[in-house]
Design a protein around this nucleic acid. Structure first.
Length: 909
DNA sequence: GATACCACGTA
DNA sequence: CGTACGTGGTATCC
């Protein structure tokens, strides 16, 4: 593309891209986690990565014919000479950043992009000078900088790209954009900045004067000179403040004026983009260990082998121009093949809407529709196709598409592949699966700007639908279609084909209906609860303040540390990054030692504020239908669990009595008879018994005796009915701890016993249940050898850190390896159970429905007269979820307990 | 305004 | 020095 072959470009106006190197690199440094971006030799690379990524995007999207990057030199400039405190508040440059600037310069050299510096001046002055010269030569100029002073350079030929979020999102500051944001034309922006001040430059403004007031004055008096001349006329407090700070304001204005007539070694004509030094670039990228970035950079070049074929495939995308009523025929002509579907819209449960749809086939033929404008015949054809279970479709994040389409009354069926789910099964530890990232990673294809936010935020304008949004939707649909092939192969390699088609994919529809149903809320009750918790907060705070004789922010760990350790002189607790912990365990321990009443009130305050916060969050989430519709996220937890968000209904309090009251607010809906909860007892321990094959543990479950008493009797060598409550709870803690990789030290902490005793307890346990120890060591060894763990359904978790040289990381990975098969197999089982329950409810034509899943528990809403049958089928499906596993049935029974009641609280056990 | 950290709820 | 999450507060950075 442009940089390598400027002649390819539309050859009208030359376009100069100017970048403030230091400013953008610094932004990148703070936008990306430094610990996640380092070479194996420890060289931090987050700033280099962020800067290069941004540069690659700019080269692609802006296709400049000329490029340069300006850098600051040192800290002293003509501005610091005029005003010693200029930029004086800035901290010392962080060490991990400092070393990255030379690397960026090296990289620019391989790209043959000039890096320009001028002692005693700032990068912005260089940009100002070059922009002025370029404009005089008839060029269009783009300036990329995080320094707002550059806004003064904006005009019809000069646009500033200002980072709004990290370095990935740039605001296009044209004259109109500057005026819309600040209320002044660009040339007046420095007047405004002089009045308001600029904290990052340590230039104080006029107290009490913000952009609004400043813009008003500037408009009123025709610029800063006028404001100064008429300072005496400005009324009110602000006017007074202006008069008191006139000198500072004028100084600010002198300092924020950019110098546009520097004598520079290179002029705009010298900045024409040149071919890269590919060899050097490869070498440098090797050193930096940038893999995806290499792909992105070289994907832009023509004739670069594999990359270019992907680029060709993407550009071969052909948007069908369909006349009204032709969609049916278009679809019919493709009825046998898998089609990619992209839905533009909002995918929120019970609040979905879709405004655009793109469909693409394997050959890159695509059709796009604006749902607001679609002709009735085409809408019918589309609706039929979407709802056709026999019309195979691939969608990225199909549950969101389901909700979006549902909002338009368009049922979705026949989704035989979901690229997000497939990528999740292949790489469960990723935290995001943006389509554009997958396209780069698996197809080496750049989808272009505007899709980073993933699902359907983009507007869908008919005027644009053959160009902008419509084309992007088509690009996405086509990428999704092509990804399906690559990911199908990838899933096969990883033994996850059935996991997708038989578990996760069918679950999408089930979850979508759970979310759509939501759970009814007794809002009046919840409001009353909020008041009551609020009163408790006030009381506890007042008492806490009374004890220490002053008011502090009890929610601030920092201020609490002052009170506890400085003012009250209490013994220090466990060290954390920012001092000493004030968590509940530490406070309880401190109270036991000091009996100080402040601690009691503080803990009470913590409890109450937490409960109030939970209630407030729930109240905010209640929909117009009086129900809360959570979102079950299917691609978040690396172990295979679901997670719940907006709001999280998987962490509603249960342990304390006050907390449990919140569960009374979750009630049965008007058209139903009761709520029903069904949960697995000790599912993780049962899975441990199954996976380890330990005869003793298996027998414990088959005997039907209380698990922890049974285990306790073996460990302590006493009859089951003589195991004391204290012994039982120790055993319980240890049993669960084992599944997490608990150490003797950790166990001792939790049980408040000596490490020796904890260690002895574990020894005794393992001497009776040796199969468990063998299993636990074996699972880690195997994972180290294969690189992954696996659940009973073959769900893998890859743990490369098992062979890390870093002990902390390695041991953390070992604990993950212990836990992932257990937690993940439990997740597999309840997902199987959900499919079974759903299938049975529908097969029998029952009106009852599932509402929630909480890891080992299902909550259902039961219709009148269906209670007995629903309970029976739920017990059956959950209890036998482990019967049809690939490697044979579970070797332990699955115990299910069921409760019913008008609220979640009353239906619980 | 965005990110980091703390604290804490669940399984 | 126990796994997996999501949320909301304060503090802190630009």
């Amino acid at each position: 593309m442009s940089v390598a072959a400027p002649t390819d470009l539309p050859s009208d106006t030359p376009r100069l891209l100017l970048i403030d190197g230091h400013s953008m690199a610094y932004r990148a440094f703070f936008a990306l986690p430094v610990d996640k971006f380092a070479t194996s030799t420890g060289q931090p690379t987050n700033a280099v990565f962020g800067f290069t990524s941004m540069l690659a995007n700019l080269l692609r999207d802006e296709a400049p014919t000329h490029v340069a990057v300006a850098f600051d030199v040192g800290r002293t400039t003509f501005r610091t000479e005029q005003y010693e405190a200029y930029k004086g508040t800035r901290d010392v440059t962080p060490e991990p950043f400092r070393g990255q600037v030379p690397i960026i310069k090296q990289l620019l050299e391989t790209l043959h992009i000039p890096a320009i510096e001028k002692p005693h001046f700032e990068a912005d002055d260089i940009l100002a000078t070059l922009a002025a010269q370029a404009r005089a030569q008839g060029m269009q100029v783009l300036i990329c900088t995080g320094d707002r002073d550059a806004f003064q350079l904006v005009n019809d030929d000069v646009t500033v790209l200002y980072p709004v979020k990290g370095v990935s999102e740039l605001a296009r500051m044209t004259p109109d954009a500057v005026e819309a944001k600040y209320g002044v034309r660009p040339e007046r922006y420095p007047d405004l900045a002089a009045l308001v001040g600029e904290t990052s430059d340590n230039l104080p403004g006029i107290p009490g004067v913000g952009p609004k007031t400043a813009a008003k004055w500037i408009g009123q008096y025709d610029g800063l000179d006028g404001v100064v001349a008429h300072a005496g006329d400005v009324p009110g407090k602000a006017g007074e403040a202006l008069r008191e700070n006139l000198e500072q304001v004028q100084l600010n204005r002198r300092l924020n004026a950019l110098v546009a007539d520097l004598d520079l070694p290179l002029g705009p004509e010298d900045l024409a983009a040149r071919p890269w030094d590919r060899q050097e670039l490869h070498t440098l990228l090797d050193e930096l260990e940038f893999r995806t970035l290499r792909d992105r950079l070289f994907a832009m070049l023509p004739d670069e082998g594999e990359e270019s074929s992907a680029a060709v495939a993407a550009s071969a995308l052909e948007l069908a121009v369909l006349a009204e009523g032709e969609l049916g025929a278009w679809l019919a002509g493709r009825s046998t093949g898998l089609l990619g579907l992209d839905v533009r819209g909002a995918g929120r449960p019970a609040a979905g809407d879709a405004w655009g749809v793109a469909i693409a086939d394997a050959a890159g033929q695509a059709a796009v529709f604006d749902l607001a404008e679609i002709a009735p015949a085409d809408e019918r054809a589309l609706a039929d196709w979407l709802a056709d279970a026999a019309a195979p479709k691939v969608v990225h994040a199909s549950k969101e598409a389901w909700h979006a389409l549902h909002g338009r009354g368009l049922p979705l069926d026949g989704v035989t592949f979901d690229t997000e789910l497939a990528a999740y099964l292949c790489q469960p530890d990723r935290r995001a699966y943006d389509l554009s990232d997958l396209a780069i990673g698996y197809l080496r294809r750049e989808l272009g700007a505007g899709d980073a936010q993933g699902e359907g935020q983009g507007a869908f304008d008919l005027e644009l639908d053959r160009t902008d949004e419509g084309r992007r939707a088509a690009v996405r649909a086509s990428a999704v279609r092509d990804l399906a092939d690559v990911l199908t192969a990838e899933l096969g390699d990883r033994g996850a084909t059935a996991l997708l088609s038989d578990l996760e994919l069918p679950l999408v529809d089930v979850l979508a209906r759970l979310e759509q149903a939501g759970i009814a809320i007794d809002v009046d009750y919840l409001t009353g609860l909020e008041k009551s918790f609020d009163a408790q907060v006030q009381d506890a705070a007042a008492e806490a303040y009374a004890v220490i004789g002053r008011e502090v922010n009890l929610g601030s760990p920092k201020q609490l540390q002052e009170v506890l350790f400085d003012q009250l002189g209490m013994p220090k607790t466990k060290r954390i990054k920012t001092g000493y912990t004030t968590d509940a365990a530490a406070l309880t321990d401190l109270f036991a030692r000091t009996q100080h009443p402040f601690l009691e009130h503080l803990l009470a305050h913590r409890d109450a504020i937490r409960l109030r916060q939970t209630v407030e969050g729930l109240l905010r989430s209640v929909g117009a239908d009086g129900r809360i519709h959570t979102t079950f996220q299917q691609t978040i937890a690396a172990t295979g669990r679901l997670s719940s968000a907006d709001p999280n209904l998987q962490n509603i309090p249960m342990r304390t009595d006050a907390g449990r009251q919140i569960r009374r607010a979750f009630v049965v809906g008007a058209d139903y008879e009761t709520l029903l909860t069904a949960d697995y007892s000790q599912i993780e321990m049962r899975i441990m018994a199954h996976l380890s094959g330990d005869e003793g543990l298996i027998e414990a479950f088959r005997s039907g005796e209380d698990l922890h008493s049974y285990v306790g009797s073996r460990v302590f060598g006493v009859p089951t009915d003589e195991v004391t409550a204290a012994q039982r709870s120790k055993i319980k803690a240890m049993s669960y701890g084992l599944a997490y990789g608990l150490s003797a030290y950790g166990l001792s902490q939790q049980l408040s016993i000596e490490v020796g005793e904890a260690s002895a307890l574990m020894q005794d346990y393992f001497s009776r249940f040796g199969g468990v120890r063998e299993y636990l060591t074996g699972v880690v060894d195997q994972a180290r050898a294969t690189g992954y763990t696996a659940t009973i359904l073959g769900r893998r978790r890859y743990l490369p850190d098992l062979v890390s040289d870093n002990r902390i990381r390695r041991e953390a990975a070992e604990r993950m390896a212990l836990n992932a098969p257990i937690q993940g197999s439990a997740a597999d089982l309840i997902k199987l159970a959900m499919l079974g329950v759903d299938r049975e409810l529908r097969r029998r034509g029952l009106a009852s429905r599932m509402l929630l899943q909480v890891h080992d528990e299902l909550v259902l809403e039961v219709a009148a007269g269906e209670r007995t049958e629903v309970e029976e089928l739920v017990r059956e499906q959950m209890g036998h979820a482990g019967d049809g596993l690939p490697d044979g049935p579970l070797s332990v029974p699955l115990d299910v307990s069921v409760g019913v009641g008008g609220s979640w609280h009353d239906a619980g056990h």
